[in-house]
Structures are given as C-alpha cells and as structure tokens.
Write a protein that binds this DNA or RNA. Structure first.
Lengths: 210, 210
DNA sequence: ATTAACTTGTTAAAAAAATCACAAGCTTGC
DNA sequence: GCAAGCTTGTGATTTTTTTAACAAGTTAAT
C-alpha cells in the first residue's frame, strides 16, 4: 500500500508506537514483532501493520521490525524528523508552563518566540526570548521561520490570536484556549484540552457503577 | 434510544459541545438548533443529535435545545455534575503546572492531595496541601475520598505510581507520563500527551506540501 | 536441502461510526 | 382550528475503520 487518505486515529497511534518503541530501545530490544508491540500498546497487531503500511514497508517477514529503524521511519513519515519552530501567543499560566516544558526540544519542537498583548508582560525576558506584542508577529514570523502557532490565551482572545497567526502566514495552529477558532481551511488546527480526558475517566467510572 | 455501547469519540465531542454551549450562553443565546451548534463545532448536525440520543431526549422539536438545560444534561450524562477528588503523584514541572492550573475547580475536579517520593519535595507546602510520600496513598485515599489518580512522574516511575494508585483503590487514572502502564482492566486509564497534537499538525502541514 | 516455526504485507470480511432522510412534533400566524 | 415552517429523534444507508485470514518471505535446525 502507500498514500491515500490516512485516518487521524492512525496518526495518534503512530505517536504511541514511537513512545513505546523508544522505551523498548532503552531496555535493549533491537527487534520486535508487530504482535509484541501490539501488546505493549494495547492494540491489535493487524492494526499496527496496517498503520505502517500507509507509509511503506518497514519490517522483515519472519523477523519483525528493527526498533531504531522503525522509530526513524515513523518520524520521517510524520514529518517530525526535523525541528519545527513555534510561536507562542499568550504567556499566562498555560503559556508559562509550555515555555518551561523541557520536552519541546527533545521532541523536535522549539518555541522560538513568545507574544502577549498585556503591557505588563511585554518586554519581560524569558530565557533568551523577550515577550513582544502580537502585532510584531507578521514581521517576525518569516524572519525567524516560525511555522506553527501555539495559542494559550484566555478563550475570548483566541480568535484574535488566530487572526494574527493567519495574517503572519503561519502553517498550522495548536489551540490550548477553551474556545473554537475560525481559520482558512488550508490551515490545520488542533485543539488541546486535557479535561476531555478527565471527563472521559469520570464517565467511565460512573458508567461502571450502574 | 438510550444506553448501549457509547463510542469514545462521542464522549470527546460532548466535551466540545459543552465548551461551545458555555460560550454561546455567555453571548446571550438561550436556545440553539442542532444545525447551528453543528456549525459552531464543525461537525454534522445528525452527529450531534445522535450523540445526545445515547443519553436521552434533551431537545424540543420545532424549537431546538435550551442552552443552559442542555449543558446541565450533558454534564449529568458524563457524570461531571459533581466534584471529583484527585490524587496527584509527581510534583515536577508538569505536576506543579497542574497544581497551579485554576480551571480544575471550575471544571469539577479538585487536586486534593499531592505525592512525590523525592525527599527534597516531601514536606513542602503547596497552598493548603503538604507533599507527602506515595506510600501514604493507601491510607489517605479512603480517608479523603480520592477517586482519580493523576500521574505526572518521569516515565520510568509511572508504573510504580500506578501500582500505588491501584493499591489505594483509586477508580480511574490519567497518565501524563510518556509511558504505558498496566493496571487491572476495571480501572480506566487515559493517556495525555499534547505532543500527539503537535505531531498531527506537523504531519498535516507536511502532507499539504507534496 | 528440506522442514518447521515465525512474521510481514495485504486482501477480504466484519464491525463500527457517520450521514442521510423523513415521520413526528412544536410554534406561529391567520 | 388549520396550514406553513422549523427542528428533533431515529431507522436506513453509506462510509470508514478495525479485525481476521493467509500467501509470501525469512531464519534456524537437522
């Protein structure tokens, strides 16, 4: 197989595979079968083989997958075999936590610029970055090669932030603010809200009760 | 319709509906049709009606849904019409950010106890909470009515944290650590990793390029 | 060199989820 | 009181996703 439409669920699982594979590698596993990987990920082994088949043939029949090689292949398939520069808008609680989050670099994402419209925050230094007004986005984005926008504003400011990002020709947006945004259809948007997961847990617990 | 198996995707969308409905209510909308709500959520209107139908009949034919009433009904359906007490394990970067996150209370979740096995952290005050050793979980959980466990440890400590939670009869777990955990099947687990969404954005951008 | 034991990639079948389409029901205006 | 205009709830249909099944390819042992 190769190319055609790829389910979003597949992308989510690929992220899981990477995580588990990296832990396997750390534990000294060089080769793994889809069956064993499947158990470690709590999915069906056909599922794994099918997910991978969208992107190519990465295994060896009768043997399995070489772990390091597979990690590299999946990362290439997802386009995360390079550094993506991100623009953060909104340096409140969430934004600050993101700036402090060490995993960004390790995972291939770099918050290269931080924006906030609060006059009290503008000018503040954050590591080697200075917080500036979002109006500067349009000029800084191309200069700095910013490609992904991270919205971490209060909900009522999210749309404005999105407008700034679109105007600055950003290529994709991840929105931590609890509100929907409208952008042109060629710009992918992902919404992040970990309370979704808490709701799901609460629901599953409640369900198990009756 | 009513009860039967409910797709996980439905739960995810109900969370979106709540978010959008709350914003609609704030903007003074008292009634809304599935068609308009669908547009605001970027989904199909039948989808909304079907999602709601799993839980009951909340609308009025010819009229639509009363916004406040619908919010209440969805929250009841999900079991988030009450406060859930949570135990946090791991007070590092992520754990601290969670403790500082103001939305917990507003959304019906309360981090009522914080645990960490680092001797430098044990004894530290956090608001009105003191960080204690995870070995105390088993005794504190029933006393305090802790029902949900939040794992925010480094990846190699996640399984141990999970064991403590299971041992303390916690009813559900949300895992922020980037590693899979094994728990008895009756305990629901949700994995949270917002890099999944960054991967997805990177992939969608890359895909659009060629 | 042949057999036995594995494991992948892929086609076919099954299951699940999303969408359509419409009868049933509410509201308003005349 | 009735017709016209909406909008829900739901059975039927379509689409998508997952799972099963197996031919094709690999390795190791005899």
């Amino acid at each position: 197989m190769k190319s055609e439409h790829i389910p979003k669920a597949t992308i989510g699982r690929l992220a899981v595979y990477i995580q588990v594979l990296e832990n396997l590698l750390r534990d000294g596993n060089d080769v793994i079968s889809s069956e064993k990987l499947a158990r470690a990920c709590s999915v069906n082994s056909s599922q794994i083989r099918k997910d991978l088949a969208y992107f190519g043939e990465f295994g060896v029949r009768g043997v399995g997958y070489y772990v390091q090689e597979l990690i590299t292949s999946i990362k290439q398939s997802l386009g995360i075999d390079r550094v993506w520069k991100c623009a953060l808008i909104g340096v409140g609680n969430m934004g600050t936590a993101l700036l402090r989050h060490h995993d960004f670099e390790r995972r291939g994402f770099q918050i290269a610029a931080a924006f906030d419209c609060d006059p009290d925050k503008i000018g503040l230094e954050f590591g080697d970055m200075e917080i500036v007004c979002p109006t500067h986005l349009k000029e800084q984005a191309p200069e700095m090669g910013l490609e992904i926008g991270i919205i971490a504003t209060p909900p009522d400011r999210a749309q404005r932030a999105a407008n700034h990002l679109v105007d600055a020709n950003i290529r994709g947006i991840i929105n931590f603010a609890p509100s929907r945004i409208n952008v042109p259809p060629h710009i992918p948007v992902e919404y992040v809200d970990f309370f979704d997961h808490l709701y799901s847990i609460a629901f599953q617990i409640t369900l198990g009760n009756d």
